[in-house]
Write a protein that binds this DNA or RNA. Structure first.
Lengths: 236, 236
DNA sequence: TTTTATTGTTTCAATTTGGCACAATAATAG
DNA sequence: CTATTATTGTGCCAAATTGAAACAATAAAA
């Protein structure tokens, strides 16, 4: 492990954790690696290189985990409690995986974590299993698995921030594919806000913003009127 | 300097900077220490102790600078560009003040700064001049002095965050004395938002929130109807 | 052709917001 | 003591926004 993470290459005491949000099957999801030989998941995270900006580090970590570039990514909170990482959890993980680290290694020290959340198009992501992961999967935000350290708190805080953002920043389109129906957009809003919205008023409000570009009809094969497809309006 | 800041006592590469907002004479102000023998101000900041939570560190730094406890304090952004602190500025400061520090001292390394903003009652604060400060004064946010490193950006970002908060969190009362008139509250809003508001609509909106407690009349001595004093409603 | 489910839009009511007007009142001027 | 002046508190009406219901359009199935 010390061969992978040399203390000189990274800033000590500082980590970056990413809450990667996706949307699939009417559910809000997050990418969570499952740790090897321990019944715990963690957030995909990493460290900041000595000469790397923190934002760039977050972008790099995200790229390593999803293979995607140019993803919507936002810093939302720093988690800096001195007891935020239960040392027993870390010890269990190391012992179970036969990893030996010097007791005074920088990896055994306290870490301040800078939280980022990412909004990605679920269908475009292929999760990458890291060196210390057994798997790396999408989990429903409403049904999280057991998480290491304070990572459940971090996800909750990210979700809170996303809800606040929803009102006055149109970021949610990053969670949808290139084109989508009004119903899909509404379902996404309902899922994030965890409350039902009126179909007619939602449509009026969205259209009035002027950021939706109507593309063509989508023939779903369902026994009803075909809905329009929309695209998020970006300057050509 | 190394006697004041021992590397073992603090987390390396990590600093906390506080934007301390106050309100006086129809102006929004910030507390800024002027560095000794250099024509630059900086933000009041400090470092995180080895076993101290980041939030606690921010509270401590704030207490050291204002003498106040239990101040409204909120983390708002991390500043983590690798080149955010011009090393020449730091060298100039050290040379001008005859401070010698080893080139490899932890103080000469790169620092990631966690930004906090504080909202304080201007009249309650007595600014404390630190060991490396020539002075420590209130400055008008619209007329900032020259600032070291990226501290001007940090103040700007804090102000942006405060504006966003104004809408959906009633934090602004921390900037006012215990009792205040409606006009004072309105002026504060106008100052932060930097735009005029209608007196009548503002009053209606504020009263409709139900958080204002009307106390008594204030006899100003002016040639007009005496305004009411209000208190921010807190549970008894 | 009729039925059914869902979409897009219109319409009307309810609520909120913007703007004006006016009464209340504390000091001052005559 | 009364009139004047400068603000403050509030009532009222119109405009804009939002909530809710109704209706027309349409794609597939009966």
């Amino acid at each position: 492990m010390d061969t992978l993470f040399k203390s000189k290459d990274y800033l000590p005491h500082l980590s970056v954790d990413c809450v990667i949000f996706g949307f699939h099957g009417h559910k809000l999801k997050v990418v969570l690696p499952k740790l090897k030989k321990v019944p715990l998941c963690s957030l995909p995270g990493g460290y900041v290189r000595a000469q790397e900006s923190v934002n760039k580090a977050a972008q790099r970590i995200l790229r390593e985990r999803t293979g995607l570039e140019n993803i919507y990514l936002e810093q939302f909170c720093v988690f800096g409690e001195s007891d935020r990482a239960d040392p027993q959890v870390l010890r269990d993980f190391l012992v179970s995986n036969n990893i030996s680290i010097a007791a005074d290694s920088w990896l055994m020290q306290r870490f301040i974590s800078i939280g980022y959340y990412a909004l990605v198009d679920f269908s475009q992501v292929t999760t990458a299993v890291g060196a210390f992961d057994e798997s790396c999967e999408w989990y429903d935000v409403q049904q999280l698995p057991d998480l290491a350290f304070d990572h459940a708190d971090i996800i909750l805080k990210a979700l809170e921030t996303l809800r606040l953002m929803l009102d006055h920043k149109l970021v949610v389109f990053n969670l949808l594919p290139d084109t989508f129906t009004m119903k899909e957009l509404q379902t996404l809003y309902e899922t994030i806000l965890d409350k039902p919205l009126r179909r007619d008023n939602f449509q009026r409000k969205m259209l009035s913003t002027g950021i939706l570009q109507r593309v063509e009809k989508k023939f779903t094969g369902a026994a009803n009127k075909a809905p329009y497809l929309y695209r998020f309006w970006t300057m050509p």
